[in-house]
Amino acid sequence: MLEIFARAGAQGVELFAAKQHLDYANRVAIRELADWFRSNPLEPFSMHAPLYPDSEMGRAGAPAVNLIHPDKSRRIDAMDEIKRALEAAELIPFRFMVIHLGERDDQWSPRSLEHSLTALEHLKAFAGPLGVKLLIENLQNEVTRPQNILEILHVGHFDSIGVCLDVGHANLTGGTASALAELKPYIRSAHLHDNHGERDEHLWPGEGTIAWEETMKELKTAPQTPAGVLEIHYSLGDSPEEVTTKMSKAFSLLD
């Protein structure tokens, strides 16, 4: 798959730390992947932090990786799991780790702010020597609304921590334009996908209701032009011709 991405013209890739996809705790697998990147021009630009510690995305009952869970032991377990993924940077030189703060229904409160500050301070100290910077992703919860992300960054004096703007999530939680207006100085990466404003569909750009011309214009004027990472839901029934057509239409909007 990486070779296909490289031949298609992708400049970089975001690795997803999901054990059924990339077993970040398996040093042999990480070493093999590192060898591939050293021999190819495709950049390991970023890694998405694990969402579950198991290889079944929680379907067997494993709890989610939640850095701001009310239970302290859960918060510690979450930080430890993300550190295991960060250790892959010893061999694979990705620049950023994309972090989720909480789950979908987590609310904003003084306690969630406190837990966010503690987790980010701890992970920042661990990631720094590995050459990795943290990015907070805007989710569909209250904790990662743009104004709350800004408060976390300002209260924690986290000058080295940035934002991964998920355009699809922004469309579901107040609008892409307002999220860009508030977060633009901090955006280092952007997850690009579309939806109809009702659920997180991960459609190709142009298949939903996001105003892509305005969105891309604003992203391109960010102080540090962010990478654009396609996060598209796929259907195994799509033919290569259908995927190519959808891709061409999407790229014309993102150019």
Rank of each mutant, 00 (worst) to 15 (best):
N195I: 02
Q147W: 14
K217V: 08
E142S: 12
E103Q: 13
T118S: 11
I99R: 02
Q147Y: 08
G175K: 01
N195W: 03
I149T: 08
H100Q: 10
H233Y: 10
R199I: 08
R111G: 05
V155S: 15
H169L: 03
P205T: 02
E201F: 11
I136K: 04
N148E: 14
K133A: 07
A177T: 12
L113Y: 09
A177W: 03
G237R: 10
W204Y: 15
I99Q: 01
A119Y: 06
L123D: 04
R104K: 15
D105C: 06
V167G: 05
H193N: 06
P146D: 04
K220I: 10
V167E: 00
E214Y: 11
G156M: 08
N141F: 03
A119P: 09
H193M: 08
G174M: 01
D166L: 07
H122P: 07
P185E: 14
K184L: 09
A119F: 10
T176E: 09
R188Q: 04
D166M: 09
D194H: 01
H202W: 02
E198C: 07
V143S: 11
L130N: 03
E231L: 07
G228F: 15
N195Q: 02
L180F: 01
H193P: 02
E201L: 12
V132N: 04
P223V: 01
D105R: 10
T225E: 14
R104S: 10
G131V: 11
L139E: 05
L135R: 08
D166I: 03
L113T: 11
G168D: 06
H157C: 10
F126M: 13
E142W: 01
V155D: 13
E218P: 03
H202I: 06
S178R: 09
A127F: 07
D159I: 05
A119D: 07
S112W: 06
K220F: 12
Q224W: 14
L203Q: 13
E198D: 10
V132G: 11
E121V: 14
I152V: 15
D200T: 01
F126T: 10
E213V: 05
D106N: 06
A181C: 13
G102M: 02
P146T: 00
H202N: 12
E198I: 11
Q147T: 13
G208V: 12
R104A: 14
H196T: 09
D166F: 03
L219N: 08
L230H: 04
I149V: 13
P146K: 02
A179D: 03
R111H: 12
W108S: 00
D194W: 00
E137V: 00
F126P: 02
S109K: 06
H100R: 02
P223S: 01
R145Q: 09
H196K: 13
I210K: 13
A211K: 09
